[in-house]
Design a protein around this nucleic acid. Structure first.
Lengths: 337, 337
DNA sequence: CTGTTAGCGCCTTCAC
DNA sequence: GTGAAGGCGCTAACAG
C-alpha cells in the first residue's frame, strides 16, 4: 500500500506541490477559493496525511520532547510524567519517556538516543554522573530542564522540592507529638541530591534539638535490606518514630510492620516523605509530607516549552516547591506530652 | 551551533558520504582498515551523531511504536505499559504513550498523530468506537495489536484476560466461603468488552447457582457515584459480599468502608478484580483476582515487533491470559458454612 | 573498495 | 495567486 504524498494531492488537484504545502500550512493569504476547495477535496478524497518525519527533517523540529526519569517506580515520578504529558499535550508536543533506572550509563544512552532522534528538548531527573554530556548540551544551547535534582555549577534550570523544609516539617511534627528518638530510613543510591539534602537536614535538626540519638538512627541501605536493618535498629535502640525517606522505603516499613504484626503508632510513630495512594485508607491513616508532583511536572513542562520556543534563556535557576504536610494518625495521636 | 553532518565527516576523513554511511551501518565488508580508522577518528573528533529523522525518512521506519491506552489511571495499564517498554527497549525501539481517557475522539486524534509521525506500529486499548480507523489500518496492513479488548469481526490480534474465568474465580470463591448475596460493582463506561464480559459472566453464574439476588446487586455507575450507590444497596438489601470490578472501583469501596468505619469481612466480604500495591498491607489483606499485566504487556510488545518485522501475519487471533486468584482475608475467613 | 547519483516527502524563496 | 527548483541528512543501487 503506497502512501499518498503531497505530490499525489497536487496532481489530483491540478496544482503544484508548493501550493498544496501552502494550503497545509494555512498560508492561504492569497489563494483563490477555488484552488483552496479543490485541494481540500483532493486531500479528503485521497485521504492524505502529511508525513511529519519529512517535515521534521526540513524544519529541524520534531514537536517531541524526551523525558528521562531516574526511577519510574516512585509514585512521584509517575505523577510528574503525567503532568508533563498533559502540559505538552496541550501544546501539541509528544513525549517519549525513558527510565534510566538510576544507572548513569543508561541515562547517557537515552540522552544520546533522544538527541539523535532530534527531540526538541529534554526533561531529565539527572543521575549527576554525566557531567560532560550535560555541559555539552548547555554549550550547544540545547533546551533542557532538570527535575528533582540539580547539578552544581551548571546553568541548567531545575525544578525541585525544598528538601530541607520537608525534613523540617517531618521532624518538627514528630517532636510536637512528643517523639524524641527519631530514626530516618532511606534507600542508598550513590550520590543523589534530594536524599543527601534530606539526610543533612535531619542531622542538623537532630543536633539543633539535642535529640538523644546516634548515627545508628540514620539507616541508608539497599531497599531489600531495609527490613532487616530496621529490625536490627529496633532491637538495639528504643525508637519512638520512623521517617521513611520516600514511598518505596515506606513500603518496606509497612511490610515489616505487617509481617511482625506491629501496631502503629504504638510500636513507633510513622511518617513518610511522599504520600501514597492508600494513605487515607491504611489503618492507621498515614501521615506524610507530600511533594506537589503535578505542579512540579507542569512547571518543568512549561519551562521546557518556553525554552524551546526561545521565550526564556538558559540559566541556573532553581524553582523550589514547598512540600505539603498531611497529618493523619500514623504519627501519633493527640498533642503529645 | 551547526550540527555536524555526514558530509562534514566525509570531508574530514577524505572519503565520500556514502562511505561514511557504509561505515555507520556496519557494512564494512570490503572497507580497508585505513579508511575505517580514518572515519572512526573523524567521527570522534567531530563528535558526529547520525540524524535519525533523516534516516527514517529514507528508510520509512522510525523504530518507534505508539501505545494508546484507554485509561492510564488503572494500575493494570501502567504495568502493561512498563512491560511493553521493556520489551521494545530490548529491541531498540522507542515508545510513545498516549492516554485516550476513554474518549473515542482522543483515541482517533492520537492514532492519526502517531501514524503521521510514522510510528512503525501501534498497541491500542481500543475504545471500540473508531471502527473505520481500525479497518483502514487493517486494510493498509499497518501493524497493530489490541490489548484488553477486541473488536468483533476485525482481523486484529488481541491480548486479553479471560474475563469470564476471572469472574468465575471470584464468585466461586465467595460461594465456597459461604456467601450467597453477592453484589458486583463496576464503573460504567460506554460499551467496553471486559466489563461487559464480566457482568454477563456474573449474571450467568448467579443464575447457575440460584443466588438469591436481583438486578439491584449489579451496580454500574460513574466512579464518583459508586459510594452512594453502594450505600443505597446496603440499605435495601442484605449483602454478604462485594466484588469490585477493577482497582478504581475498589478504591471507592475502600473509601466508603473507611468513612463508615466498617469492619471487613464482617460488614461484607470484599474481593476485587485487579490486585493493588497495598493488597497485603491493608487490614484485612485484600483478596483479589490479578491480571498478569506484565506478561500481557510483554506479549503485546512481542507480537507487535514480530508483525513489524514481518515475522507474523495479521490475523484475528486472541491471546487469552488466565487470571491469578490471590486469596487473602478480606473475602472471609475459614471455609465458610 | 569507494564515489556518483538519485531520491525519501516536505518546505521555502523566488520567479512568473 | 501559483509553480519551479533546491535542499534538509541520509541511504542504496550502481558504476568505476
Amino acid at each position: 500500500m503506497k502512501k499518498t504524498t503531497m505530490m499525489d494531492v497536487a496532481t489530483h488537484a491540478n496544482v503544484s506541490k508548493s501550493t498544496v504545502s501552502q494550503y497545509i500550512n494555512k498560508r492561504y493569504d492569497f489563494m483563490s477559493e477555488a484552488t483552496k476547495n479543490r485541494i481540500k477535496a483532493s486531500i479528503q478524497e485521497l485521504n492524505y496525511r502529511p508525513n511529519i518525519v519529512a517535515r521534521s527533517l526540513k524544519q529541524k523540529t520534531t514537536y517531541t520532547i524526551g523525558v528521562i526519569v531516574s526511577n519510574i517506580l516512585h509514585a512521584f515520578t509517575t505523577q510528574v510524567i503525567r503532568a508533563i504529558e498533559d502540559t505538552c499535550q496541550a501544546a501539541d508536543f509528544h513525549v517519549i519517556v525513558c527510565n534510566a533506572d538510576d544507572q548513569p550509563e543508561k541515562e547517557k544512552r537515552y540522552i544520546q538516543m533522544l538527541r539523535d532522534k532530534q527531540v526538541d528538548g529534554l526533561i531529565v531527573f539527572p543521575t549527576g554522573e554525566n557531567r560532560e554530556l550535560y555541559e555539552e548540551m548547555v554549550h550547544n544551547q540545547f533546551p533542557i530542564v532538570f527535575v528533582d535534582r540539580k547539578i552544581e555549577g551548571l546553568p541548567i534550570t531545575s525544578v525541585m522540592l525544598e528538601n530541607s523544609m520537608a525534613m523540617e516539617m517531618a521532624v518538627e511534627h514528630l517532636l510536637k507529638k512528643g517523639h524524641k528518638k527519631i530514626a530516618l530510613l532511606t534507600n542508598a543510591i550513590k550520590f543523589v541530591l534530594p536524599r543527601q539534602e534530606r539526610v543533612s537536614a535531619f542531622e542538623k535538626l537532630a543536633k539543633q534539638h539535642l535529640l538523644p540519638i546516634n548515627e545508628r538512627y540514620i539507616v541508608s541501605k539497599e531497599l531489600n535490606q531495609l527490613q532487616n536493618s530496621l529490625h536490627e535498629l529496633l532491637q538495639l535502640e528504643e525508637v519512638d518514630a520512623v521517617i521513611a525517606g520516600n514511598d518505596l522505603v515506606l513500603f518496606e516499613v509497612l511490610n515489616y510492620i505487617t509481617s511482625r504484626q506491629l501496631q502503629i503508632p504504638d510500636a513507633f510513630a510513622l511518617l513518610s516523605i511522599d504520600d501514597v495512594s492508600f494513605g487515607t485508607l491504611y489503618n492507621p491513616p498515614l501521615t506524610a509530607v507530600r511533594q506537589p508532583a503535578s505542579e512540579m511536572g507542569k512547571k518543568a513542562g512549561e519551562l521546557l516549552l518556553a525554552k524551546i520556543k526561545g521565550e526564556i534563556e538558559e540559566e541556573q535557576t532553581t524553582y523550589l516547591f514547598e512540600p505539603i504536610f498531611i497529618e493523619r494518625s500514623s504519627s501519633g495521636r493527640g498533642e503529645g506530652i
